[in-house]
């Protein structure tokens, strides 16, 4: 026979509100299933063990900062050599950077192949592939207008993508490879492939596309190029979102970079 005070509780022992059944009220009731291991001492420890989302975000940041490290190392090497930089050295350095970039991105693509491969296995609507070169005309025009305007205001030093290779006797095909082909493939896999997919695990698709475009513009470390790179990144993000494929993005990126190299080459040669 139970004691008078030990019968079914009428009030919640944790908050004191009336209850009609059970040991606690609905708000204070313990979970039915103990599904999360909880390390002691963490203020928000019950959700910190869900590794999936933070790990993916960390992966995107890891890839970004590794690529930034490659650029920083190349810039330091450029400064160390200083006045002794020759066209041959510049060509070799460009090839080395392209190779390092490709190695890092391919490693990341292999590591996250489940996210990247579906974007290579589908072509998307052919309309996007047809529209990509025309969109590149728009991004190149925008880039020319912005860079031309800023150059006319501040008379910034000229930067040539093709001059070192041409001076070293390689012709225009080498800058087309190192400036147009390699970045189009590696940067699209890195940004629209790995980083965008990783960010979509913690952000809405629209936010992920904007953040990816911003990271793409920031990585180039050029205030002069920031506006048109941001617009280009947003366009590429939109195409990737709508088509679900990386091919139109790679084509647009290649057309943009190739146009810049060819326009610069033939403008200087004229």
């Amino acid at each position: 026979m139970s004691e008078p005070g030990m019968s079914q509780p009428s009030f919640c022992p944790d908050c004191g509100v009336p209850i009609s059944g059970g040991s606690h009220c609905v708000r204070c009731a313990p979970p039915a299933v103990d599904e999360i291991a909880t390390p002691a001492g963490s203020r928000v420890s019950t959700i910190s063990n869900e590794k999936q989302a933070p790990a993916n975000l960390r992966s995107a940041l890891w890839l970004y900062f590794t690529l930034l490290g490659v650029i920083a190392a190349f810039t330091i090497a450029y400064q160390v050599v200083g006045d002794e930089v020759t066209p041959e050295w510049e060509v070799n350095a460009e090839l080395a950077v392209s190779g390092l970039f490709a190695a890092v991105v391919l490693f990341a693509a292999f590591r996250f192949r489940r996210s990247v491969l579906p974007m290579f296995s589908r072509l998307g609507h052919p309309g996007w592939t047809i529209a990509a070169p025309f969109m590149a005309v728009g991004t190149v025009t925008l880039a020319s207008l912005i860079v031309g305007l800023i150059n006319s205001m501040f008379s910034l030093p000229d930067q040539s993508y093709s001059a070192p290779a041409v001076a070293a006797g390689y012709g225009i095909w080498l800058p087309l490879f190192t400036v147009a082909v390699c970045p189009a493939v590696t940067e699209e896999i890195a940004f629209r492939g790995v980083m965008n997919s990783a960010l979509r695990n913690v952000l809405e698709p629209r936010e992920a596309a904007i953040v990816t475009a911003l990271l793409f513009a920031i990585l180039h470390l050029s205030i002069l190029s920031f506006p048109h790179l941001l617009v280009m990144g947003l366009v590429l993000g939109y195409i990737r979102h709508r088509s679900g494929s990386l091919y139109p993005c790679i084509l647009l990126h290649f057309c943009h970079n190739a146009s810049v190299v060819l326009l610069e080459h033939f403008h200087d040669g004229a």
Binding site: G5, M6, P9, F11, C12, P13, D14, C15, G16
Partner: peptide, 17 residues
């Protein structure tokens, strides 16, 4: 209310105080 509370807590399960 002099009730015995088997469930440890901040409030009495019999009177709610």
């Amino acid at each position: 209310c002099s009730a015995s509370n088997a469930v440890p807590g901040k409030f009495c399960t019999a009177c709610g105080r």
